[in-house]
Design a protein around this nucleic acid. Sequence first.
DNA 1: GGTTAGCACTCGACATGCCTAAGTGCTAAC
DNA 2: GTTAGCACTTAGGCATGTCGAGTGCTAACC
Lengths: 337, 337
Amino acid sequence: MSEPRKLEVLRAIVEDYVHSREPVGSKALVERHHLGVSSATIRNDMAALEDDGLITAPHTSAGRIPTDKGYRLFVDQISAVKPLSQAERRAIQSLLEGSDDLDDVLDRTVRMLSQLTNQVAVVQYPHLSRATIRHIEFVLLAPRQVLVVLIATTGKVEQRVIDVGQDLGDDAIAALRTHFLGSLAGISLSRLTPSLPGVVSSVSPGQRSAAQALAHVLETLAHNSREERMVMAGTANLARSNVDFPLSIGPVLEALEEQVVLLRLLSDMAQDPRGVAVSIGRENPYDGLAEASVVATGYGPDSTAKIGVLGPTRMDYPTTMAAVRAVARYLSRILGP
Amino acid sequence: MSEPRKLEVLRAIVEDYVHSREPVGSKALVERHHLGVSSATIRNDMAALEDDGLITAPHTSAGRIPTDKGYRLFVDQISAVKPLSQAERRAIQSLLEGSDDLDDVLDRTVRMLSQLTNQVAVVQYPHLSRATIRHIEFVLLAPRQVLVVLIATTGKVEQRVIDVGQDLGDDAIAALRTHFLGSLAGISLSRLTPSLPGVVSSVSPGQRSAAQALAHVLETLAHNSREERMVMAGTANLARSNVDFPLSIGPVLEALEEQVVLLRLLSDMAQDPRGVAVSIGRENPYDGLAEASVVATGYGPDSTAKIGVLGPTRMDYPTTMAAVRAVARYLSRILGP
DNA sequence: GGTTAGCACTCGACATGCCTAAGTGCTAAC
DNA sequence: GTTAGCACTTAGGCATGTCGAGTGCTAACC
């Protein structure tokens, strides 16, 4: 039994199953692909593949379907990433150009990716760490309530309202703003935390506690807030592939809503040499996503923020991987160096 | 045939059907409710209700289920809004307190409402129109790219990056900022538009076109942007009530993603005297939502922003209406006067 | 040794027919 | 206006039979 042909058979099974959604049998296989051998031979190969745990039969006398392990082998060794069509490339380019607003760009990107792949698409907000502080604004909303705004050079704006714990007047807040801004303008967000204690300690004691609260918020804004969010599109595609999630799409929707889960999953995924990371079925630890695969990659200056799609394990991996990679590249380009 | 009993029968049918999800027959009706008459009498009443188009039979020899019109009558005339339990009230209160960030509050609110009702919950960002301008910031990102930030007194922040069409230096942008801020600080967002031409025309001719672009963005930020967004939670609940959307939940998910549709629907809904608006099934014009009902109400100072839930027409209206109303009240209170 | 043909066997999918329970509509009596 | 009774309809469950796709195995073949 030749090893190359065995892999060829696996490839054929994956492709046919992805295409037809039905277990594929030995006879159909020799008909659709010109493998040059008879169905009996294929049967032997299939038995071997089943022993290896790469395919499985839903029941006796049905065809075989790939297992998670089978998809994994397919993705890693067999498939070639299918390049996008010229039309698709043009569509991406034209849709993504013509807007500068970050929210808007991400929104368009994710819709585009979802249409391209017919799956759910997600994109994480870009990380801020390489940006530097452009401006800080404190706005007094009530005697103790302050709106804190942090503006970074990348064009990102974070804001939050806090209770500073003591009454402050307009003058006091203006003084604090000048003080913070003078000390912090121009430094990078990643170096914000070490700078804050110095700034706070040089504030007059009467406003020390307020300054402390403000510093804490600034730190939070710089690190946690926005980049922990994501934009999503195409959840309706889940319903269309109803059949692919045998139980219900409920758990999948739950996982999608619990963004923390998705974010961890995205960042835990190891990057493939081809630049795309793939998580197949139970490879990810979340029960709700046991029947789902995620194809993702990084984008932006240092590829820390993620973009990807989520769909049933029975997914057209080569095309999806190509789409994710292409969209990520365009997105990186749009967002600038 | 007594008219009051007919309504009583309709009420019983709605309640039983909502409870059991199965067509309800005359016999089961007299057993579960003590109507004081025999099943034959009920049959006569049911025939009359069917003539009125309030109930319908899926097939001969099955029980009856309410029509959209039947639900409407039920909601308008028969049902009493069911007050929330003490525990529920406490849960709402404790969950919503303890956070000042608007995004955070809306997020918690919508999750809470979705859990309370077991449906999809949506909330629209509060309107800005009553707020006044607190601060305007222009940040030069590149020679022609400017980040425009608009901070309102309500604690809301809007931002966008634009291309001003001409090269500007740091000095020029600072001058523009001072000029805009001096003329506009303190005016209400709703009066922003009429003020802008004057501001632009008093800018030196060399920067006129840039000022024009900036003014245009400010106008957009003040009116359109954020309040046209919404937060959503509980889409997984749709999947659980799979049975209730006979075809597929796909179209519903699509409608939910196309937020424009939802926003229009929410604002078009007429408020009920009891303070909650209800749209039942095909009463709303969107095909994807033909099997869905929306229960919504306004919140905030002048009740212009909406909050509501969406679920199958077969929904527990009294409880849902109570939940929506209660959560809207707490939310209004949290957001302040 | 790998490949092939042939054959018995398994099992899901589908159709058919039958039966029961639920429920209706109608009529005649109260 | 209400009720009892009865004939009628129909979905759904169940048993049965048939068909076809597909497998696994063995023996023959190159």
